[in-house]
Amino acid sequence: MRRKLPGEGRTAVLFLAPLFLVYALYFAYSFWFLIGTSFTKVSIGFSNAVAVGWKNYRLLLTDPAFLTAIRNNLLFAAASIAVSLTVAFAIAVLLASGIGGRRLYYAIFLVPALTPIALVATVFSRMLQYQDGALNQGLRAIGLDGLTEHWLTDSGWAFLAVIGLLAYLIGLPIMYYTADLAALRTDVLEAAVLDGAGPLLIMRNVIHPMMRSTHITVTLALLLGSFRAFEVVLLSTGGGPDNTTEIVGTYTYRFVTSAGSTIGYASAASVLVLIVAMLVSVVQVLVTRTKRGASR
């Protein structure tokens, strides 16, 4: 490692100046503004704010819908992680084994993940409608009327519908696995094959453990992403029926975009969400740092 040169600190400040500017304007100012607003009752015009103390926070923490939203965020993230570590992993391995039509398969799995999520969610919500939706119509067409369900208005099914939608977007995890599989040493496989192990066993007991760092990458990426994607719910179930599929994004969005003096309340919700999001990031940084330390 090169030694530190005199004046390098000041150079660093200059190189980091644009970063500081963006962070100051978009994050530091935002947090400061949110904290201030969260103690008031005010409309989106931001005039005539009334101080209400901790009331907004009290309301939030006693609102079952908000707590459900946070819980759902984590549950949905867990579900998409579970699907990725199994289905996406299996698809990536199969595609890496030199099966025909690879490029086409990649395209099929990747396109949904790159399409505007708003669009995918809208298509799903139309597809899942009880009477005219393609899914139920398809089921009826092949005589499986018994399997038709109220996908969007039954709490349990609506929850599964959102999970299905998230599962539909596993293109990116497939890409992660594909890239890392290419760098994997395969001589272990040969040994396993010589031992007479079947493909499923090899996938589960040999390759899967070897991809540990990719699993972590995928898990973290999905956990982070789960806080950002709110269109998934907004445009499929709309958070319903009765908030059973609400996530923090749709919850906050609803209060920001509705008329009335709801902005203070929305700000308090934002502050709590930011705290949770930062906590997730801290965990992630801790994990990374340990890995970094271990690898040195």
């Binding site: 978009y26 994050f27 100012y29 935002s30 947090f31 503004f33 949110l34 607003t37 956990l223 982070l224 806080f227 950002r228 709110f230 923090v248 994004g249 749709t250 906050t252 969005y253 920001v256 902005i263 929305a266 700000s267 934002s270 969400v273 930011l274 999001a277 930062m278 997730v280 990031s281 992630q284």
Partner: peptide
């Protein structure tokens, strides 16, 4: 992990 919806107001 900052969600856009959380900094929507500011």
């Amino acid at each position: 992990a900052i969600p856009g919806t959380a900094i929507l107001v500011p």
